[in-house]
Structure formats: structure tokens, C-alpha cells
């Protein structure tokens, strides 16, 4: 009973701390991310244009008041496509972080908590997956599974859960010798309760900090695969795919390439501001 009450207090204060404290750049990052997410969700209210409909009467128009980012070779409004593209690219980042974070955290907790052969086996698997260059293994897996967004998610998950497992394992190993964990064990709490209620809340911060840089990486990898024709398929608006489609028109319509690339840069920048801020906060919480 008291444990449950304590937990809600801890959870609320953590959320409050995440939103109300931190450096200026961290708060600016959060604000910018919120605005980007809202813009993606409410895209139909922001731009009157359909991101997919062709308009062969207005191809390759330079940026103007009518088309803020110009139009591409099929007459599609680049601003609308960037806006709608945010839906896909942010989704790639979010799923590419959330699923591996979940799997990696559980596996890392188990490995770090139990140690012994469980840890040895998981440790070897982690070592092996880390030996592959991230992008190369993602490309190889998608090459086998076939192109598409779902297969991209599968590949991202298969490759990046190990990174989270490694982080959480290390934290768990350090924590399991702390007095409060030993006390919980002496009180006869079950392993799963100790792992998920007592150790997990204290290991999750570094995983989240890493998750922010992983988010930017996943967006880039997703865009890269779509650029090579392995991810999102046309005519869906996605930033990497937009760059690939407009590449041949670089000399006549550079705006159609600059805009989606700049969108990737902005998202990476915003996410790294948040990540740096979270890292500062995590250091503060742990007193390290």
C-alpha cells in the first residue's frame, strides 16, 4: 500500500522535474519538439495542400507566398510534404527508440540482476551485435526482409535493443549491491518486484538520455534507407524519399532537396538539446 503511494509520488515528481527544471536550451528543446509534433498532427489545418496530389500546372516553382518551400517536379507543395513527412519520420524515431528501449531494458535488468550464465549469454549476444556497423546491419536485414516501413522497424529493433541492454545492465550491476536493494531482498521481496520497482526507476535515466541521441540516429537511418529505396515507398511523403525523388532536379529546384534535409537537421538538433538537458538532470538526480 505504502509502496504504491510512494511510487506515484516519485513518478509525479520525476515528471514535474522533467518539465519544470533544466537549462534554458533543454526547455527550448522541449518546446520546439512539442511544436513540431503538433504541426505534424495538425498538418491539414496548417497547409491547404495535399502532400500527394499531383499538379502538373505548377511544377518546380521556387519558394513564394503561395508555396513557402516551392513545389517539386510533380507540382506537389514541398512545405506540405515536409509537414506530412514529419508524421512518418517522427514515428520512425519514436518506434525506433520505444521498442528497443523496452526490450533492452528488460533484458539488461535480467542480465545485470541475475549475473552468472544468463549475463554471460546476453553479454555475448550484445558483443556480437555491437560488432556490426549499425547502418550496415539495418540495411542487410531490410535487404533480406524486403523494403518497407514495418521491416525497417523490425531491423531497427533487432539492432538497437542491445545498446539499451548494455546501458541498463551496467547500471543494474552497480545498483544491486546498494543497501536499499539488499534491504528489499532481506525483506523477502520477489526478484521481479526488486528489479522492476526498486532497480528499474534508478537505471532508466541513462537509457532515456541515450534514447534521445538514438532518436536522431533512427530518423537519419530511416531517411537514409528510404533515400536508397529500402524504407518508405512513394508517394508517401518522407524526408529521405523526398530528397531521393528530387535529386535529379537539384540544379533547377534545390529547394525541394534543401527543405526536407533541413527538417532532419532541425529534428536532430532539437532532440540533442533535450538529450543534453536530460543528461544534466540525470547527473543532478544521482548526485554524480
Amino acid at each position: 500500500m505504502t509502496a504504491g503511494a510512494e511510487q506515484t509520488v516519485a513518478r509525479r515528481s520525476l515528471l514535474q522535474r522533467l518539465l519544470s527544471t533544466g537549462t534554458l536550451s533543454y526547455r527550448l528543446g522541449l518546446l520546439a519538439l512539442a511544436m513540431i509534433v503538433l504541426a505534424a498532427i495538425f498538418a491539414p489545418f496548417i497547409t491547404p495542400y495535399d502532400p500527394i496530389a499531383l499538379d502538373m500546372t505548377s511544377t518546380l516553382h521556387p519558394p513564394s507566398f503561395v508555396h513557402p518551400f516551392g513545389t517539386d517536379h510533380l507540382g506537389r507543395d514541398v512545405f506540405a510534404r515536409v509537414l506530412y513527412g514529419a508524421r512518418i519520420d517522427l514515428q520512425i524515431g519514436a518506434i525506433g527508440v520505444a521498442v528497443p528501449l523496452l526490450i533492452g531494458t528488460v533484458v539488461g535488468l535480467i542480465a545485470g540482476y541475475f549475473g552468472g550464465w544468463t549475463d554471460a549469454v546476453i553479454g555475448r549476444v550484445v558483443d556480437v551485435v555491437i560488432a556490426f556497423p549499425f547502418l550496415v546491419l539495418v540495411i542487410a536485414i531490410v535487404a533480406m526482409l524486403g523494403p518497407g516501413l514495418l521491416n525497417l522497424y523490425i531491423a531497427l529493433t533487432l539492432v538497437s535493443w542491445v545498446l539499451y541492454a548494455r546501458i541498463v545492465r551496467g547500471e543494474t550491476m552497480a545498483l544491486k549491491r546498494r543497501e536499499y536493494v539488499l534491504a528489499a531482498r532481506n525483506l523477502g521481496f520477489s526478484h521481479s518486484r526488486i528489479m522492476f520497482r526498486h532497480i528499474l526507476p534508478n537505471t532508466i535515466a541513462p537509457a532515456f538520455v541515450f534514447g534521445m541521441s538514438d532518436f536522431a540516429l533512427d530518423v537519419q537511418v530511416g531517411a537514409t534507407l528510404s533515400f536508397f529505396g529500402l524504407g518508405v515507398q512513394p508517394p508517401t511523403p518522407e524526408w529521405g524519399l523526398m530528397i531521393a525523388e528530387s535529386r535529379t532536379f537539384l540544379l533547377t529546384a534545390p529547394w525541394a532537396i534543401i527543405a526536407p534535409g533541413a527538417a532532419i537537421v532541425v529534428v536532430s538538433l532539437v532532440v540533442s538539446l533535450i538529450g543534453d538537458g536530460l543528461a544534466d538532470l540525470a547527473r543532478g538526480i544521482d548526485g554524480r
Binding site: 537519419q220 531517411a223 537514409t224 533515400f227 529521405g240 530528397i243 534535409g261 537537421v265 532541425v266 538538433l269
Partner: peptide, 10 residues
């Protein structure tokens, strides 16, 4: 934050 394929084209 710049994707390599984009900075390459630029």
C-alpha cells in the same frame, strides 16, 4: 544532425 546523403548532395 545532417544526414550524410544530404550533406553529400549539398
Amino acid at each position: 544532425g545532417m544526414p550524410v546523403f544530404w550533406s553529400g548532395i549539398m
